[in-house]
Simulated scan of single mutants.
Amino acid sequence: MTTTAATKDGLPSMIAYLTRVLKTPTIGAFWEELAEQARDENWSHEEYLAALLQRQVADRESKGTVMRIRTAHFPQVKTLGDFNLAHLPSLRRDVLAHLATGTFVAKAENVILLGPPGIGKTHLAIGLGVKAAHAGYSVLFDTASNWITRLAEAHQAGRLEAELKKIRRYKLIIIDEVGYIPFDQDAANLFFQLIASRYEQGSVMVTSNLPFGRWGETFSDDVVAAAMIDRLVHHAEVLTLTGDSYRTRQRRELLAKEKRAGRD
């Protein structure tokens, strides 16, 4: 069947068929609505075509973003817009804005967030991960202990290389809470292999409550820790954050509120 051979009455069924074959359901759903708008506003053929294609692309990108965020396995979805920057004056706004563009992922660069517990490192990591997903990059999030468990299970099953290759398909991996739980020598070696496998190949984002000088305590080996840090920071933005814990601050604010209420 061709367009020229089709009658006007047969156009809807023909377009429905063609959009199914081309896998463009949004065009199939909106071509009539946009055609009426085009006639009312005297669009050219080119303007009508562009409007249809834009609608299809926007819908596909939106669904792709939702899927990337879902498969990232964030513990919860948090955005940078929800983050109260006023409580973290040590964070440079220009650096955060640059990281939010996701260009570091395109360059296979890393991001390291260092600072005491409770100041919002995980929130920032998730927020930047969500931004990367919106920019079209695949993301995978987990805690450091869970990453080790995943690698240890693969190693025991004799498929560590296959697992590392699978992880390399993600443009950005986020390793949360490095330093909260110490690792033995075997775990440290697995962690090193994860970092080494992504060196200049894919981006890594790490949050840690420990400065680099104390990573040897976590990985049971100063040499392994130094080699890991060397690969992480070679192409990286390292943000050392200072500030009050959210929980401590919230408790302090609650006590102040109760004190004011008592005076009233």
Rank of each mutant, 00 (worst) to 15 (best):
E217K: 11
E217F: 04
S208P: 12
T218A: 11
I181F: 14
P211K: 09
T207D: 03
T149P: 01
G136V: 03
E161N: 11
K166W: 12
S197W: 01
A144Y: 03
N189D: 14
G129E: 12
R150S: 14
L190Q: 05
E153S: 11
Q201W: 05
A132I: 05
K131R: 15
T207N: 12
A152F: 06
H155N: 15
A133C: 15
H155R: 14
S197T: 09
S208F: 09
I195A: 14
R214K: 15
R168E: 10
F192I: 10
N146G: 10
G216K: 08
D142V: 07
Y170T: 06
L210V: 01
W215L: 01
F212L: 11
V178A: 12
L172W: 02
Q185F: 13
I175E: 04
R159F: 01
V204N: 02
R214M: 12
E163D: 15
S145C: 10
G216S: 11
M205R: 08
R198D: 06
A187H: 07
L151I: 08
A144Q: 04
A162N: 11
I126N: 03
A157P: 02
K131T: 13
S145Y: 02
G127T: 11
G129A: 11
P182K: 07
L190F: 06
T207E: 01
T143G: 10
I195Y: 09
T149L: 13
A133I: 00
R169K: 15
Q193T: 04
L190M: 09
K165H: 12
G179P: 06
L172Y: 04
V206M: 12
D184M: 10
Q185L: 14
Y180A: 04
A135C: 07
Q193N: 14
A162V: 08
A133R: 01
A133K: 00
L151S: 02
P211G: 07
Y199V: 10
T207G: 05
A188T: 11
V178P: 00
I181G: 08
K171P: 01
R168S: 15
I126W: 04
D186F: 13
E163I: 07
D186E: 15
E163L: 12
H134P: 03
S138F: 03
M205T: 10
I167G: 02
A196N: 15
L172Q: 06
I126T: 07
E217V: 09
V139I: 07
E161W: 03
Y137S: 05
Y137G: 03
N146C: 11
G158R: 03
A132L: 11
E200H: 13
N189W: 01
G136S: 09
A152T: 12
G213L: 00
G213E: 11
L194G: 02
P211H: 00
L160V: 07
R159S: 12
E153G: 13
W215G: 07
K131G: 07
L160I: 01
L210W: 06
I181P: 06
T143S: 15
G158V: 10
K165F: 10
E200F: 01
F183T: 05
P182I: 10
H134W: 09
S138V: 04
Q156T: 12
N146M: 14
A157V: 00
F141K: 08
I126D: 02
D186P: 04
A154T: 00
L128E: 03
D184L: 14
L160R: 05
T143Q: 09
